[in-house]
Simulated scan of single mutants.
Amino acid sequence: MFLELRDLHVKYGNVEALHGINVHVDEGEIVTILGANGAGKTTTLMSISGLVQPSQGGVYFKGKALHEMPSHAVVREGITQSPEGRRVFGTLTVLENLNLGAFTSNDKARIRKTRDWIFELFPRLLERKDQLAGTLSGGEQQMLAIGRALMGDPKVLLLDEPSLGLAPILVKSIFETVRAINKTGMTVVLVEQNARAALKLATRGYVLEVGRVVMEDSAANLLANTDVQDAYLGGSGH
């Protein structure tokens, strides 16, 4: 199994955020995780990244137990995250932010090659490379957050709400870029409020409700499912 969450329970103090979820992601897929605010979507990604520890169950990547590793070791295994809210370092330049994403690598030639590829994906970042990240627009900061995650040369890219707060035209552009990234063979796990756009992009999807997986299916089936339409897509077929 490529990436697997087995019977994953996560607690914050006495509050259980995830109640034994099972999720698997095959190599080369885009898998989306849908659900209302507070459903446990971000917690799921943070569990994969090693930023929160499970109280029970575990996260496995190619048979290795990620939940037993510190988060920087998870990055070395090939899993990076573009966090919700972008979290770029505002007082550093675009270039400095990108270089921070490559902190686990000493291979200068590979770092340069990855950076050139990111500038191809996001030409705007090349134009702004010497600008402070805090002065970028929301859309540019989102490009930078994804670019920074890609600098780690991941096998799995975790994206947390990449379309949040962006204009529709930018959302379309970000999703097209995610598709291009996936076409290189990179696996993507996408948490996204924009359920329709996420399902059009993804191979498969999971629906979380209060820390439990209530549905798992192909993205096409979830798009066509009336319960999903009513809950997340604004009514049947509209």
Rank of each mutant, 00 (worst) to 15 (best):
S137K: 00
N194S: 06
E192G: 06
N221S: 14
M151T: 05
K113C: 02
P83E: 04
G211Y: 13
K113T: 07
T32C: 13
A180L: 07
G235D: 03
T114S: 02
I118L: 00
N22F: 13
A73R: 15
K108F: 07
N194F: 12
I48S: 12
E84I: 14
E140G: 04
Q56V: 15
R148P: 02
L170R: 15
V10M: 05
L136H: 08
R112M: 09
A39P: 15
H238K: 12
D160Y: 11
G63N: 12
E120Y: 02
I79H: 07
G35R: 09
I181T: 07
G138H: 07
D230E: 12
L66G: 09
T114M: 06
T114L: 06
N97G: 07
F61Q: 13
R148K: 05
M46T: 14
L233G: 08
A36E: 15
P54V: 08
V189H: 00
L166I: 02
N37A: 05
F89Y: 05
E68C: 15
I33S: 02
L157Q: 04
Q53H: 11
L201M: 10
L159G: 06
E161L: 13
P154G: 00
T43M: 02
T91F: 15
D230M: 09
L166D: 13
A195N: 10
M69Q: 06
S105E: 05
N182M: 09
S218C: 02
V59H: 08
V74T: 05
L92R: 03
F175K: 13
D26F: 00
A197E: 14
E16L: 11
K113Y: 07
V210Q: 13
N99P: 06
I146Q: 01
E68A: 15
P83C: 03
I21N: 01
G38H: 09
T226N: 07
S47E: 04
R86T: 10
S218T: 06
R212Q: 12
V214A: 02
G85I: 13
A220E: 15
R212T: 09
A202R: 05
Y12R: 12
H19M: 12
A198P: 04
G139S: 10
Q193P: 06
L144S: 04
R86A: 01
G185D: 09
V88Q: 03
K155P: 13
V15Y: 05
G90F: 14
S49A: 14
S82R: 11
S105P: 08
D130M: 08
S71R: 15
N37E: 02
G211T: 11
L208R: 07
E127S: 01
L157M: 08
E140C: 03
V171P: 15
T135F: 04
G35W: 14
P123W: 00
L166A: 09
G57D: 00
V74K: 14
S105L: 08
R86L: 08
L92C: 03
Y12L: 06
L18K: 01
